[in-house]
Design a protein around this nucleic acid. Structure first.
Lengths: 302, 302
DNA sequence: TCAAAAGTGTTGCATCTACACCCATGC
DNA sequence: GCATGGGTGTAGATGCAACACTTTTGA
């Protein structure tokens, strides 16, 4: 009797089942489901060899890509990534992929966007969440795991080619055309990327489109362009750039990273004032550079 | 012979298959897959009745919730949403849910975040992408579709309760404790929400956690808190607030919306200068208000 | 008449921009 | 000596916060 009373207090659905009973009878195989993957955008800053004993080496924003050894898009370059395990958190899948590719665990990681158009992948329906990871090139081991024998770093540039604004009665359409260029040791990959923002009465609709894609697998050109755009925006109002820096750096090195990300030259004096309270002075100097030694700084983590 | 030549030019994988042959033999049922859903955060600004003929009605940020009629979480309030169809783009699923709940199609819609922790849903593994939609309350029909007989608007408040910063050797830990309160006609729902940012040497780790949840289904309290936080940030540097406004509005109404979103009073003169070139004057005035008539403005969509 | 909101002007302070200038080093 | 980067100062413009003040209306 007591037991029955307890049962009556539990909420029951239309079929008279308690939650426990309902779950026991639930059949997850009833519906067809898409595959879920994670795609990793692993960025770092690499330096070119210097051609003059005085000059500082040039820096480039670099991205890790993997050459596909299987269909589809055999031979093309793709973002590292893979399927999400059934007993694995989404972010843990990203961390696992990151470690598989770079051997690194504790670096900056951020969820970017989830791509879910039908037809992204010719095999089956694939929904893919992209994550962006940042690290300094010094903590990267020269060659990554055996699994990634076909992995390579590409220098990434995203250039605005054209911007067109059409006015309408109750809004406008803004179309931005970008060119993405990825330069590797052997190959140069490229893609055309177009953002169309349509602003209507209450609406805003943003469409991201690949107009061409050379040497890149799937819609990864689009994802890469999106990530670089996000990185550029975030540099302006967060401390994200510091995750691309080694523990100790000079202010000019930091400025170079900002300049590479923003694709824009900055004035030294103003830059230093802007980032002044994001850094901490050390007592160390970088010497042997063919010019006045420069003080080393650290990221000020408060 | 000619045909054979053509075939030899196509890339072949280790098993000697062309891409076409590979795809024909691909079996998508080989791996177990999670379910994918979309969750909708549909926000609007509602007005309270005015208690004084002179005073302007108070505004509140409001969110649409649905009372669950099925297990699990029977009787609790949840975000509208549902499964993504196999032949349906992710964003189209969001648009479909939006129209089912509100009858609206062309309103502001933005992808927020994808939640993929194991155990979010007791039935099976569910990965869910949340979308935020904004509209003005005037374009909402009084009662939505029959499907949503158990849908209701709740006033949403997210209050920072405590902020704690602990310093370490090489970084710090920042813990922010929030209280989410959702006030409906009949019920008040609430949740405790905690963000922990751990900043280490190269790392940043952000953990979002629900400490309690009263009357809200699943982890939806967390998703709602995340969305309000995003909305608050975006108000500061985008024109997102205008998507909550009707076609014509007074500057004080606009200021009230900013104040509700930011949970902060603003100075009138400064506010007007700040938003000056985001609005367009009209020749119309709002009268019969017990005070000086106010000019009506429109959103300046350039 | 007066409470409530509409609407504008002013002042001081903080921040950003552009530019100029000097310093230290290795070859 | 000199090319190269390291490092700082300043004047003018711009932007923002705080506050004061006037105007207009309906009951």
């Amino acid at each position: 009797m007591k037991n029955q009373n307890l049962n009556q207090e539990l909420p029951r659905d239309k079929r008279g089942l308690t939650e426990e009973e309902f779950l026991a009878g639930y059949n997850p195989a009833k519906y067809e489901r898409p595959s879920v993957t994670v795609d990793m955008l692993i960025f770092t800053i690499r330096e070119q060899e210097k051609n003059n004993y005085r000059k500082l080496p040039e820096k480039t924003l670099s991205l890790l890509l993997i050459q596909r050894g299987e269909h589809p898009h055999l031979g093309k370059w793709a973002l590292p990534g893979g399927f999400v395990g059934m007993e694995e958190n989404l972010e843990d899948a990203a961390l696992r992929e990151l470690e598989e590719e770079t051997g690194l665990k504790d670096i900056y990681l951020e969820q970017l966007y989830t791509w879910g158009d039908v037809g992204r992948d010719a095999r089956t329906r694939v929904i893919s969440t992209s994550y962006m990871a940042l690290t300094d090139s010094k903590s990267l081991v020269p060659k990554a795991s055996d699994d990634a024998a076909n992995a390579a770093w590409f220098s990434a540039e995203l250039k605005l080619k054209e911007e067109k604004k059409e006015k309408y009665e109750n809004g406008y359409k803004l179309k931005q055309t970008y060119k993405l260029i990825l330069t590797g040791e052997q190959e140069i990959l490229s893609a055309g990327y177009e953002i169309t923002k349509t602003i209507g009465k209450g609406t805003i609709h943003t469409e991201r489109r690949l107009t061409e894609s050379n040497g890149l697998a799937f819609d990864h050109g689009k994802i890469i362009a999106y990530a670089i755009d996000r990185l550029r925006n975030k540099v302006l109002y967060t401390d994200i750039a510091f995750h691309l820096m080694p523990e100790y750096f000079t202010l000019t090195e930091l400025q170079q990273v900002y300049e590479v990300l923003l694709d824009k030259e900055l004035l030294k004096a103003n830059f230093r004032r802007k980032i002044a309270d994001m850094v901490l002075e050390t007592e160390e100097y970088r010497t042997d550079a063919g010019h006045r030694p420069s003080k080393l700084y650290q990221f000020n983590r408060y």
